[in-house]
Design a protein around this nucleic acid. Structure first.
Length: 288
DNA sequence: AAGCCGATCAACCGCAATGTT
DNA sequence: CAACATTGCGGTTGATCGGCT
């Protein structure tokens, strides 16, 4: 494990620790306690630098370290703490007895982060990735507005490249974005004929079901889902205003009975949401 | 059986913060 | 107060393993 020694200056060994080295370090710290890492390797008869000894002790040899797989509760705690603290691994580790910052960091990067990405959650912001949302419902809501014509004549907004890019992702290939006015006229015609028919999301997002999550489903990722409640009067409040660390840690929605985080995170409806019917184009622009 | 490839995780590196002289 | 030493932290690397072709 670990990288090969890249150098061997001054007789200082690098790379993986041997059982003999581990035993020497353990024996020494049993007698003298940890600390004074600079002189420790010399006194313990180790050809290592103090930094390497400290790392080996704090991340692997410490007797209070809990080895093995992360439990569901631990993963949930990590996600909640990360949504507040970010990459403050030592601070997160301080709230997870027996786990080291290095272990948590590795677990985040190799497991949790990937699961969040697969679920359409930005692992940095813990908010839904805009490019993965069912924006077709938003556009349909816009097209269905009684005052749609006023929106459609807002040329500066229509030419916003972000809007065009998003729309191009949502529209089927047979409706190229040659002219924004053509686009809106085309959809306006469609919606005039079938007022309750939204622009289909099935072509672009076959998994999306646009169903409101149940209470049980939302409770698990409550801190992140709290940002999904999009409406004209509460567009994406800053995370720091929405959450308090202590309240997070004591949230009544803490649900140990859910023993498979992956199954929940992969649930197709978990992070889906629908823009409300009264959600306006200006509200959408405010999100970009 | 052999090679490839992605996942895992121990260990290293560099920098910042803190402590000491 | 400056200089140096030590400790802590987060990002990154790369050996190893297991699954797949």
């Amino acid at each position: 494990m670990g990288r090969l020694p890249c150098c061997d200056k001054n007789g200082v060994k690098k790379g993986p620790w041997t059982p003999e080295e581990d035993q020497k370090l353990i024996d020494y710290i049993r007698l003298h306690g940890p600390g004074n890492w600079r002189i420790l390797p010399k006194n313990a008869g180790l050809q290592r630098c103090g930094k390497s000894c400290r790392l080996r002790w704090t991340n692997y040899l410490r007797p209070d370290i809990k080895r093995g797989r992360f439990s569901f509760e631990e993963e949930e705690t990590i996600i909640q703490l990360h949504s507040v603290m970010g990459n403050k691994w030592s601070a997160i580790a301080a709230r997870l007895p027996g786990r080291t910052d290095n272990e948590i960091k590795n677990h985040w990067n190799t497991h949790i982060r990937k699961r969040l990405v697969r679920s359409g959650i930005d692992p940095v912001t813990h908010s839904p990735r805009l490019d993965l949302l069912d924006l077709s419902s938003l556009l349909a809501a816009i097209f269905n507005q009684p005052n749609f014509s006023s929106v459609a004549t807002n040329a500066s907004s229509l030419l916003n490249p972000d809007v065009l890019r998003l729309a191009s992702l949502l529209l089927p290939p047979q409706q190229p974005l040659q002219n924004p006015n053509t686009l809106y006229e085309s959809n306006l015609d469609q919606n005039l004929q079938t007022p309750n028919t939204s622009v289909s999301s099935q072509d672009t997002q076959p998994q999306a079901e646009c169903t409101a999550p149940t209470k049980d489903e939302t409770s698990y990722f409550e801190p992140m889902n709290a940002r999904l409640e999009v409406g004209p009067s509460d567009v994406l409040p800053p995370l720091s205003e929405s959450f308090d660390l202590d309240s997070l840690m004591s949230t009544p929605n803490y649900s140990p009975q859910q023993n498979n985080i992956e199954a929940e995170a992969n649930s197709s409806s978990l992070f889906d949401f629908r823009f409300p019917d009264n959600f306006t184009f200006d509200d959408f622009m405010g999100l970009l």
